[in-house]
Design a protein around this nucleic acid. Sequence first.
DNA 1: ATCATTTCTTAACCGAAGTCAAGAAGTTTG
DNA 2: CAAACTTCTTGACTTCGGTTAAGAAATGAT
Lengths: 214, 214
Amino acid sequence: MMNLDNDVTSSGQLDPDFEVLEIMKSLVSSNRNTQEEKDFFAENIPVKRLKKGTLLLKEGQILKSSYHLFKGCIREFYCKDGEEKTVAFYTVGDSLYDGGHRLNQTPSNVTWECVCECIISVFSFEVEKEMYSRFPRLESLCRIETEKQYSSYKNTVNNYLSSSPEERYENLIKTKPELFQFVPLYHIASYLGVKPESLSRIRGRLRSSASSKV
Amino acid sequence: MMNLDNDVTSSGQLDPDFEVLEIMKSLVSSNRNTQEEKDFFAENIPVKRLKKGTLLLKEGQILKSSYHLFKGCIREFYCKDGEEKTVAFYTVGDSLYDGGHRLNQTPSNVTWECVCECIISVFSFEVEKEMYSRFPRLESLCRIETEKQYSSYKNTVNNYLSSSPEERYENLIKTKPELFQFVPLYHIASYLGVKPESLSRIRGRLRSSASSKV
DNA sequence: ATCATTTCTTAACCGAAGTCAAGAAGTTTG
DNA sequence: CAAACTTCTTGACTTCGGTTAAGAAATGAT
């Protein structure tokens, strides 16, 4: 398994691949930002291509950046009693950050693993701080955005807690069908809160109840 | 059951009770704040005493304030299939807010109920906005605080998900023993993710395993 | 193509939570 | 005090996930 360690942010030049350049362009073209802000992003937020299996962050490591996912899928998990417990899947358009650990400079509790080839932008903590001091209005926007994300996460958790593994599975198929292309079922089982054998049974139950309706 | 509706924030004068005044004093005496900031708080953040059973926020209502709990205990729950699902207990020193719903002016998903007499400060959204414009450094502090809370909440959720109801019960006794003074066990059962009958059995199991150790 | 590895499924058995029902213990009300 | 209600416990039975073990299916390597 590949390990990225510190070289994500250090690498100077951009992957010359067309796709990455397209993404870079979209990164700096939001019409909600001023030209000055766009220039700042273009200069300070590199875009990287990551191979399947790359660990963007490892449990115990200190997080130094936030990331935005333009393409691919990243799995978040931690280890408990030698078992990997998957707690999130990030897909296109999601951001990966952890204010608490980044701000406190404490070791991360989770690992971020690319489950397929990914394209991300790298927003280092230093650049973030400089951005806030140069463009105070963006700090206000980020505060608001964080509050909304937090609120939305609480909702997600409440929905999760008040549904059965079976309901969670059906819901996941509806809301993130693309996951099933990349992610082995035993990771999805972990995410749904059951063992792989149980997910098999759940799928079996759903198959038979679906066929009995015919 | 009492209903508070909009009159929490409207009432002008302070409850003249000694305890409330003491709390008001502590509210404006933090030495991390400038005198100007303290004056602003004293003028704009009223402190209220709430009776047991008061609903500080009702499911479907639009949240207009944030609250800080100086005394008492508040239960957060929502209804699913006619059942109340308890998702949090707030105790002394906790803050109650919901950035997402407050900022979007969308109806709340949860209800906040005082499980005993409570003393809170009321921080209205309008006052919050004015505070940010008058004291920009406080917006920065709040952004950082929100990120830390968010991160800490994620941790709590992960711990919850990777433990059994029995472990959660034992953990709750250790971390929030005061809850058991105020809150009926069936609310605690809901919070732990089981039915009251199951919590009874868990308690039974723990009793017998404790006595067998003697 | 063959072999090895990873991933998924099935079956038998066990333990824990859900459900339903009854009743005990504790609290409130008149 | 007694009646009514709320809260908690217990028992019988069902359902579902965990565990173990075996094997099928899919994927990758030589």
